[in-house]
């Protein structure tokens, strides 16, 4: 088992695995995205209070969940890199950061667009919105710390510690609507807040599509990162030569 993991974590095998997985992430993502958008915008009925405006939930909720999930993956991969010094875990953590920051920005922006007509304000400083904004700053801090070092190992070490420290923000974001009075509404997912089966299907489709998008982007970016880090090894030079010709 340990041998198998070590083999998977060698740069060359990892690169080939990424290569193989990309189409397996790409096509399901595209089909689920199209199906999910159709289900969100056409099949699902309008809401009894918010009319069609509620449909932004199908973008907002998956990206908000992903923004936290990606952070957890990033911190755990960073921790694995720290303890077992697996280079590929460092790469997964590093390439996850901008993707997670992207999901966070989508969640914040879609929430603001939703908030203006429904609440009457683009932004309020309640616990949920503020902690999600802190999450964005954590991603940005991680990215700048990671790029502040010339040596990728040192960069991975210090930024992984930052990522692990920032983990505390995840339960705060999740429980903020329960612990404190917030303008943001409580949980809809997992509490039966979404009453219509078509709405549930649409949200599930968009959620799975978002996970696939994350996996796809990690595979693509990790592949490039491996080539950059291993640029002096023979197999990379051969690979690049065969790609160029």
């Amino acid at each position: 088992m340990w041998k198998w993991i070590q083999r998977q974590a060698s740069p060359k095998v990892f690169y080939q695995t990424c290569n193989r997985l990309i189409p397996w992430f790409f096509w399901p993502f595209i089909s689920l995205l199209i199906l999910g958008l159709y289900w969100s915008l056409v099949v699902s009925p309008a809401d009894y209070q918010q009319g069609d405006g509620y449909r932004i939930i199908f973008i907002h909720v998956p990206s908000a969940i992903l923004s936290m999930m990606v952070y957890a993956v990033m911190a755990i991969a960073g921790g694995i890199g720290l303890i077992w010094q697996i280079k590929m875990a460092e790469i997964v953590a590093k390439v996850s950061a901008p993707i997670g920051a992207g999901f966070t920005i989508i969640a914040l922006a879609s929430g603001a667009i939703w908030g203006k007509p429904m609440w009457g304000a683009w932004w309020v400083w309640d616990a949920r919105l503020t902690s999600e904004l802190v999450l964005l700053f954590l991603y940005l801090a991680y990215m700048s710390l990671n790029s502040a070092f010339d040596n990728p190992r040192t960069a991975a070490k210090s930024s992984s510690i930052l990522a692990i420290v920032g983990l505390i923000n995840l339960p705060i974001i999740h429980y903020s609507v329960k612990w404190w009075n917030t303008l943001h509404q409580g949980y809809s997912v997992g509490t039966g807040g979404i009453k219509d089966p078509d709405m549930q299907i649409a949200l599930a489709l968009m959620f799975v599509a978002s996970i696939l998008l994350y996996a796809l982007l990690v595979a693509i970016k990790a592949r490039t990162e491996v080539l950059i880090r291993e640029q002096n090894s023979r197999w990379v030079q051969e690979e690049v030569r065969s790609l160029m010709s």
Binding site: P45, A46, D47, Y48, Q49, Q50, Y54, I57, M118, W119, G120, A121, V124, L183, Q185, G186, Y187, S188, T191, G193, I194, K195, D196, M199
Partner: peptide, 20 residues
Amino acid sequence: TEVLAKHDENYMPPEVAAAL
């Protein structure tokens, strides 16, 4: 000086709301 609406966590079509 400012009034904001707070909506709840329920999403459903009007028919379901009426039935409930």
